[in-house]
Amino acid sequence: MNNTMPAAPATDDVAAHLGESSPGTHLERPDNPIMACEDVDIFYGDFKAVSNVSLQFGFNEITALIGPSGCGKSTVLRSLNRMNDLIEGARVEGTITFRGEEIYGKKVDPIEVRRRIGMVFQKANPFPKSIYDNVAYGPRVSGMKVESMDELVESSLRAAALWDEVKDKLKDSGLGLSGGQQQRLCIARTIAVRPDVILMDEPCSSLDPIATLRIEDLMHELKQDFSIVIVTHNMQQAARVADRTAFFTALSAEGSGDRTGVLVEYAPTRKIFDDPADQRTEDYVSGRFG
């Protein structure tokens, strides 16, 4: 569908939906954004992976990024805590702010950014250490002043809804847990450093439906204390958990096969699913493409 549409007008279309002049857009923005992207382009070498994204992430809200494969949603997510810095040739243009401060600023230490903006990955990646040490790792490496590490580990595991299952085997390896438990351990580990924002990159994609539901319930709980941005392939998941949803798609550049991700529509989740403003959003959420 997107292939039939010329690139330039489509981008204008996007701008029309998000620009200041567009009526109603103001109401749909979070009142109290904790992070914001402004005209963000992301490149891998010469390849422009994401073009002209402007987004605001609400404080203590869950924001979902959805869209077909290759639309750049994971790339946007990874740029929010500078994990993209680790990929050779990756470059961000435009501004991304956290509490009003530019995270790609010259004097900003990416280590500090990642301590404030945590990340949970697609595949659960517990360290080959004990459950306790997995959770205590973040506070230890960041030199956090902790009154009692035992208490911090317990409260983090409780917050991740894992405490009851592991309280008797804290010294056992984190790799001995089930997939869903491992992912909750990774969430506990992220919570332990007390970030403001938690980024989740398809956190349930390798989990069964029951484990997925547990993580989704957990996200609703975590929302009280953290702002969450989640990338998901699962539209029902976005509909279930997210306060706001951003729909991305990929446009083919003229004359080359490179596909660049663009933001099509950003609105409260209910509006995206019930009354999308853009035809492409409607096609995607109703399962007609992607």
Partner: peptide, 18 residues
């Protein structure tokens, strides 16, 4: 050593040395 381990560590705010 899988890259996920390095990424997990860095995402928690560990330095490359750590």
């Amino acid at each position: 050593v899988p890259n996920e381990i390095r990424q997990g560590s860095l995402a928690l705010g560990a330095t490359q040395w750590q």
